[in-house]
Nucleic acid binder design. Structure first.
Length: 596
RNA sequence: GGUCCCGUAGCUCAGUUGGAUAGAGCAACAGCCUUCUAAGCUGUGGGUCGCGCGUUCGAAUCGCGCCGGGAUCACCA
């Protein structure tokens, strides 16, 4: 990469001119601002201490040295302490003509090392997926693509939370009021049917609490003593005791949830290499806890409950096993971490989990360290922000959630309406049109979510449906489709961009050069997205790329250009841009249509 | 209350290993389709980067203190 070379040569310049050693990384190198002539800028303020000369003089000396040593540098200019280097067009055109045809451009060769286990999705089987889960799933899938592009082996793992008190609540409500209805008998998608009973439980539980408070109990007492919660706890005990009737219903209802989830996953276009079930990992967790107790690392209280004392590490005590011997969330997560480590010996275990669980992961790591597990250091919590509605946080129990399936339906429907209004689907078959609406609707949704920095909370307003103009998925898809149309016309005229022989002596217009430079950047953007675990880096990049291309498309003729050499250059530039758009979108899990 | 995160244009977001006059989109207004797809392009207006102090040649970016918002501190997950 040219940046590396500039850094190294700058160090060489400083060594030669000022007898001083610097590391290439310590050179302040950035892309030149748009309004100023130049491609790369070296910030020399800090170097003037070494040269003991004014910043301008230092910059000029280094500039002269670099221009002499690097044939890529055409000229340079100095503004205050900024040394702006102008690379010659030859360099950029050579890059374009060589790299545009490399299928692996921007991607790294597989590294032969231990895999990364990337956990994402991890639904609870007591309710259907909502917008928060969509963010999780899109982030997880995209990150897997990005890590693969960086040469990592990735195991996409889904840890299904299929046991616990929350499932028992849905089960209890079903036993009481279900009247043996099933997804088949009601026509309701399995996960939604279960969600219905979860809500039903909570409604009735709430009114029981209300009644008890009226009878004089405190809120806390009422929450603990309400008959429904006591019954649900009894079901959890029966389940852990493997009571056949309980296990049977549990298996049936979870099966409904899985059927429902599979449909939603498929629509979202996400998948997994490995499914873990809490019901299969909690026993290992229990075992780890018991070992810790016997080794004196954990403590047991009088009521039989088992705890980790983390007070010396700035946290509190943490329950690991209830007094009745049943497991909590942390118990199984200890087991899952161990299992995952044993299964893959991963170099890195990434958990895509919301930032509301930051404390959980602090505790998880510290407990594992206490238990002597060195792999705790490789646990990496990708803590993403909440999706908030205008009224605030979504709450399943209060019904203020944006359901995943409903949202997908709406997005696809809006895509259809918009496309028809523009009169664009007329020539397509029903099947093609359906696929296109799906591509656009999902593209809009996915891009909307992924363009935001994962770590930040984001707002979704259901009343203002997601846009299709401006900085959006469909805008980028549209740019891609335009390019494909252009290339089709080009090949009809006898030009194939893949084997275009571009003259290296052309001079570039500012718009052309800008886009070539941006294509060059793709390589570092992929690395940055991988380092930062941030699809948003890719999303913002591809938007800039598409925007820049649209400017070219609008202002410069491609096929109608009179200079044949220029036609080749622009076709090649168009084809390369299309290819990088497609790659970027693939890293986001977004498809691009050839026509729209 | 303790811990952590956030606060950039009317709205949604970029920009944060310190660098040049702080950027996009949406919304508003004004233009551009007899020429490669107008889901596009061009232009105008819109900012005490929450507030204050400090570090620095230089702060939206780093430090400290406030103000405002959120998360979490469960024998929930």
């Amino acid at each position: 990469m040219i940046e590396t070379k500039i850094r190294e040569q700058t160090c060489d310049a400083i060594r030669t001119l000022y007898r001083h050693e610097l590391k290439p990384d310590s050179i302040g190198l950035e892309k030149t601002k748009k309004e100023i002539p130049g491609d790369y800028t070296i910030v020399v303020f800090a170097l003037s201490k070494i040269s003991r000369k004014l910043p301008e003089a230092t910059a000029t000396e280094i500039g002269n040295f670099l221009q002499h040593k690097m044939p890529e540098i055409a000229t340079f200019n100095v503004i205050k302490g900024f040394l702006n280097l102008v690379l010659n067009d030859h360099f950029w055109i050579k890059f374009l003509s060589k790299q545009s045809v490399q299928p692996a451009f921007g991607f790294h060769k597989p590294r032969h090392e231990r895999p990364v286990v990337l956990e994402y999705s991890s639904p609870n089987t007591n309710k259907p997926l909502h917008l928060g889960h969509i963010r999780n799933n899109l982030l997880g899938f995209s990150l897997a693509e990005i890590l693969k592009a960086n040469g990592h082996k990735v195991v996409k793992a889904n840890l299904v939370n299929d046991r616990g008190i929350h499932i028992c609540k849905s089960m209890l409500a079903y036993m009481k009021w279900g009247q043996h209805e099933t997804p088949a008998s009601t026509g309701i998608k399995g996960d939604h049917l279960i969600g219905k009973y979860y809500v039903l439980f909570n409604t009735n539980y709430k009114s029981e609490i209300h009644d008890l408070i009226i009878k004089g109990l405190t809120e806390e007492e009422a929450e603990r003593q309400a008959p429904l919660i006591v019954e649900a706890q009894e079901i959890l005990r029966r389940w852990e005791a493997k009571d056949p009737v309980t296990v049977d219903l549990w298996r049936t209802m979870n099966g409904w949830a899985y059927e429902g989830f599979d449909v939603t996953y498929q629509r979202l276009g996400v998948d997994f290499d490995k499914i873990y079930h809490e019901s299969e990992t909690y026993l290992l967790g229990k075992k780890l806890v018991m070992e810790g107790l016997h080794n004196g690392i954990l403590v047991q209280k009088d009521d039989g409950s088992i705890w980790a004392d983390l007070r010396s590490e700035g946290l509190d005590e943490k329950l690991l096993l209830r007094s009745d011997g049943t497991s909590v969330y942390m118990t199984q997560d200890l087991g899952t971490a161990q299992l995952r480590y044993d299964d893959y010996l991963p170099s890195n275990m990434i958990y895509v989990v919301g930032n509301e669980q930051n404390y959980h992961f602090d505790v998880l790591k510290k407990v594992l360290v206490k238990l002597g597990k060195n792999y705790a250091a490789h646990i990496n919590h990708l803590s993403y922000g909440m999706v908030e509605l205008p009224q605030g946080k979504m709450k399943s129990r209060e019904g203020t959630v944006v359901d995943a399936d409903d949202l997908l339906d709406e997005m696809i429907q809006t895509a259809e309406e918009t496309t028809r209004e523009l009169g664009k689907a007329n020539e397509l078959t029903t099947e093609e049109a359906g696929k296109l609406f799906n591509t656009i609707g999902l593209g809009a949704l996915k891009y909307f979510i992924l363009k935001v920095d994962p770590k930040k909370n984001m707002l979704f307003d259901p009343k203002e449906s997601i846009d299709f103009n401006g900085n959006t998925g469909p805008f980028i898809q549209y740019t891609y489709a335009r390019i494909q149309s252009l290339l089709a016309r080009a090949s009809a005229a006898g030009f194939w961009w893949e084997d275009a022989q571009i003259s290296l002596n052309l001079s570039l217009l500012p718009l052309e050069k800008e886009t070539i430079k941006r294509l060059y950047q793709f390589q570092e953007v992929v690395i940055q997205a991988g380092d930062e675990l941030s699809p948003a880096v890719i999303a913002n990049y591809v938007y800039e790329l598409a925007k820049g291309f649209n400017q070219i498309y609008q202002e410069l003729p491609v096929l109608k250009e009179s200079d044949g050499e220029k036609v080749l250059l622009r076709i090649c530039l168009s084809g390369f841009t299309g290819s990088v758009i497609k790659k970027s979108m693939k890293l986001l899990g977004i498809e691009v249509p050839d026509r729209m």
